[in-house]
């Protein structure tokens, strides 16, 4: 399959490239240049540039959106909201029927859910709240939903929260890992993060319950704060790392 990766050189991108490199033909785009020795087609592209996204999507079978900009009060909307519009416009323009979108868990489960409830699932109506990152991504997701409602294409959205290195289980920017001290109950090893995208790219569209489906993307963990069964059931995703050293006091770490 010919796959366009938007924002493919950020934190998640390299793991997605690794998961899909041998199975698909990748066109990777980002505002940052890839590392030396990068073996795939690369285009320097800003997702908020409609014409550039339209050109990059030509000839593709699938678009995967990994682009994000969290904190800048203008760029966050440019990338996360308008960037999604550009992606969906490109999908329609080129007859691309599969779009894989990614985002943070709180574009759906904002504080009004997370601070209050358990059993939170990916089919709930979004309540992102007013945090810039959450709301700008949520509006991008809403644009995807509208396009899926109006056009013969599918949007598969993977929501992430906390990512950990498969070896040390360290989270980004974390200097010390506190084993046996619990963790964010929506965590996944980076390797598995990439694998989840591969599953979304490869799932038969006829197996999706609707043209717009959202999935919580995290490992098998016992908290039941969030539900992750849907991604295993529908996309066939099987996480390799279960992060048990974080939440099981009897699990040996050495």
């Amino acid at each position: 399959m010919k796959v366009l990766l938007l924002g493919g050189n950020g934190m998640l991108g390299p793991w997605v490239v690794k998961a899909m490199a041998d199975r698909h033909q990748l066109r990777v785009t980002d505002v940052n240049e890839p590392r030396k020795g990068f073996k795939h087609e690369f285009r320097n592209l800003d997702a908020s540039n409609l014409d550039a996204v339209l050109r990059a999507a030509e000839g593709m079978d699938c678009i995967v959106n990994l682009s994000v900009l969290r904190h800048d009060r203008k760029l966050a909307w440019d990338v996360s909201t308008r960037g999604n519009y550009n992606m969906m416009a490109a999908a329609v323009e080129h007859g691309i029927r599969r779009v894989v979108n990614t985002g943070p868990h709180f574009q759906l489960s904002g504080p009004q859910y997370e601070d209050w409830d358990f059993g939170l699932n990916p089919d709930m109506p979004p309540q992102p709240g007013t945090r810039l990152y959450a709301l700008s991504k949520a509006m991008g997701q809403e644009i995807c939903r509208v396009f899926a409602e109006r056009h013969d294409l599918y949007v598969i959205t993977l929501l992430y929260y906390n990512m950990k290195l498969p070896g040390s289980l360290a989270a980004p920017l974390e200097k010390q890992v506190n084993y046996h001290d619990d963790m964010t109950p929506f965590s996944l090893a980076w390797t598995d993060c990439g694998e989840a995208v591969r599953c979304a790219v490869e799932v038969e569209l006829s197996k999706l319950p609707s043209r717009c489906e959202t999935f919580h993307t995290f490992s098998d963990i016992p908290h039941d704060k969030f539900k992750s069964d849907k991604i295993q059931r529908v996309l066939g995703f099987r996480p390799r790392y279960h992060l048990e050293a974080m939440w099981n006091k009897g699990y040996k770490t050495t």
Partner: peptide, 27 residues
């Protein structure tokens, strides 16, 4: 049900949702 091919209506809908989140957060 906002359309995807009418930017004025789609943007109006997005504006509704942005406003709604400020209300939801009781701001």
């Amino acid at each position: 049900h906002p359309p995807s091919n009418d930017p004025a209506l789609l943007a109006c809908h997005i504006g509704e949702l942005v406003c709604k989140e400020f209300a939801r957060d009781r701001l």
